[in-house]
């Protein structure tokens, strides 16, 4: 490989390839036309959008739904998961129900949510919470149970009680799982916040997308999709780094 190419990060390279493929698919073949945008059309549409206040307002609403929903789910799920994880019985008995609840796609709840809460930001928040809380709780509980029995027994031999075992063994070992769970949950929060707007009229970029779509504005639609993808990647990068710092001992 030439030296110049080697310095480009692999991720960047594949992004460029993807954009080129997108451009080709959008220009020739069955998808070419007004209902689909090419990469260049989407990028130039995005360039216009990012200078419009309505776009940022919509983005801000989505961020609010995702962030508030995410925060609420963590505040509920982490302590709940810790409690569930402390006994094998409560873990085993909750796992079935929680596993069942966590695979229900939040989108199927939108009709009920619209009825009960109405098409508002609050509904978006509620859907985000629903999307995260069960999987996060079970992930936390798993982390708590996952604490090394050898370590726990060593602690018992040194007469360290339950409180110390939780603080110094169960929590740090759960931190690994909690970190992984948070990474997944944050990505899911963004997706659900968009879907809540798109399908449920909760506002934000989702509703913005619904409007561009119904106006037949493919360029804007794909510009927003491109933007959301970029935000998702950036967020996930940030979280991976944060997680590595938090559980610095893993993989050593």
């Amino acid at each position: 490989m030439p030296a110049v190419l080697r310095r480009i990060p692999a991720g960047m390279l594949s992004a460029v390839v993807a954009l080129i493929v997108w451009q080709i698919i959008g220009s020739v073949g069955p998808l070419a036309g007004d209902s689909f945008a090419t990469a260049t059309e989407a990028i130039s549409a995005l360039w216009v959008l990012v200078r419009e206040a309505t776009f940022w307002l919509a983005f801000w609403e989505t961020v609010q739904m995702a962030a508030i929903g995410f925060a609420i789910s963590m505040v509920i799920a982490i302590p709940l998961g810790m409690l569930i994880g402390l006994s094998r019985f409560s873990y085993r008995s909750s796992k079935f129900t929680f596993d069942f609840l966590k695979v229900i796609p939040p989108i199927v709840l939108i009709p009920i949510a619209i009825l009960v809460i109405g098409p508002t930001l609050a509904m978006g928040v509620a859907l985000v919470v629903f999307a995260n809380v069960f999987s996060m709780a079970i992930q936390t509980a798993y982390g708590v149970r996952d604490a090394d029995p050898v370590l726990l027994e060593t602690m018992r031999c040194f007469r360290m009680g339950l409180a110390k075992q939780i603080r110094y063994a169960r929590l740090p070992s759960a931190a690994v799982q909690i970190g992984i769970g948070m990474r997944l949950a944050l990505a899911a929060s963004l997706v659900v916040a968009v879907v809540a707007g798109l399908v449920g009229g909760a506002g934000g970029l989702g509703t913005f997308l619904a409007l561009t779509q119904s106006a037949g504005n493919a360029d804007d639609t794909y510009a927003v999709i491109l933007f959301l993808g970029a935000i998702g990647v950036a967020l996930s990068r940030l979280l991976v780094r944060g997680h590595r710092r938090l559980v610095f001992w893993v993989g050593r």
């Binding site: 050898v150 370590l151 031999c157 110094y168 001992w249």
Partner: peptide, 16 residues
């Protein structure tokens, strides 16, 4: 009473 086990990697805490 104090203990030392074979598996030091599991009885010492890697986060401390």
């Amino acid at each position: 009473l104090a203990v030392v086990l074979q598996d030091y990697t599991r009885s010492l805490m890697p986060w401390l």
